[in-house]
Design a protein around this nucleic acid. Structure first.
Lengths: 212, 212
DNA sequence: TAATGTGAAGCCTTTCACAGCA
DNA sequence: TGCTGTGAAAGGCTTCACATTA
């Protein structure tokens, strides 16, 4: 392994590899080749090898990859070798959906706190999380919660964003496109449902009527 | 404008431009330069011009772009010049969040139907949409609903995906990574909340403890 | 003058081909 | 022989610089 600037796209694929590997590990399987893993996930085998090669040499020629070891390595690369905690702000439908989503745990992630500014919601329990007033955001650092999830309506997005940054989080997953993401040192990943939906028609072939 | 293979990334940015332009249009503003639009959205002015140039020449040197005209052009490119309809399958928290999300309309998109297989949910009204049994999916084509949104739990994702494809949709927005997306002619965009959240730690600097 | 539109350069990512190892 | 790891080629996207146009 030589020095390479690691493509962001390679990092983006690592969780996919993890998702594919974890069930295999549970089934007790020991090894897998890049070819088989690629088939399983719908990737190319050379891309999988290349991606891993950016981070080190994890396989054995002729044998493939030891699944347990590979999982450990990917966890380490993604800094998921300790449980990471996130705070969610905005307990509406979307917030509830995220809070109840069971899929974070397998990666070693935990949504550990929830905040809202609606007195009717504060105090409510979702699973083992009690909704807190947003003013409590300042306690995040003390509680070792390093990540924020924004699920508030558009109007409240900017102030929520600022509050999370002030609270000292290191990264934010935002479901709102309604805040500026300045040149902060906080990594922000934005998901905009509408924008993803809206570009589907572009990819559809012309209608039959138009074609005659 | 010469022939160019249009970058997918350029298509992905078009809805952003639309989002920036629509409020300006409502405010009655007539023109905007690529420089000002870039500043507004946090892009580069040359990228905006380049993106537009893939599709045509919409501006006037010395003047900038006519906002109304530009909006029409982008709508046309994205095939949003007529209202597009989507059907949502899976009326859980996430499904409700999507159904109640007000942000589709400005783009000319409408979530026009909702389906579930839970008898307790069928018949329920959300806004002006009544939840239907999934067996009704076969009526989509007749109802001019060309797009599907998958918000079901992981276990049901594959069968929902197949049902939507059988129902003749042209594109699918899926919130589940739990289905194969074969080499179908149906465009699929997948959003996986967990995978986006999970790669945030990668981008955080090493902890203070580790640095001494 | 002020701003667009675009060829070309530069950069990043994917794909290829194969050396090297078990 | 089978499979990994990786330089190098190919491809795609972004950035630049400037000719061009109102």
């Amino acid at each position: 392994m030589k020095y390479h600037k690691i493509p962001d796209e390679a990092v983006r694929r690592l969780p996919f590899y993890l998702r594919g590997l974890l069930p295999l590990s549970e089934q007790g399987r020991k090894n897998i080749s890049s070819h088989d893993l690629a088939y399983l996930l719908g990737f190319n085998h050379w891309q999988i090898r290349k991606d891993f090669s950016y981070f080190g040499s994890f396989g054995t020629p002729g044998m493939g990859y030891n699944i347990e070891k590979l999982i450990r390595q990917i966890r380490k690369i993604l800094k998921l070798n300790v449980v990471r905690k996130a705070a969610l702000v905005g307990v509406g439908n979307l917030g509830l959906a995220v809070l109840r989503y069971p899929g974070f745990r397998i990666y070693g992630f935990e949504v550990a706190a929830a905040f809202d500014n609606d007195p009717k919601k504060i105090g409510r329990k979702i699973g083992n999380i009690t909704v807190e007033d947003v003013s409590n955001l300042r306690t995040l650092q003390k509680r070792k919660i390093d990540f924020g999830i924004i699920t508030v309506p558009c109007e409240a997005a900017q102030q929520t964003f600022d509050a999370l940054v002030r609270a000292g989080v290191k990264g934010i997953l935002s479901f709102s496109p309604c805040h500026k993401t300045g040149p902060e040192k906080v990594k922000v990943i934005t998901i905009d449902i509408a924008m993803d939906l809206v570009r589907l028609p572009y990819y559809t072939p012309a209608s039959r009527a138009a074609k005659g």
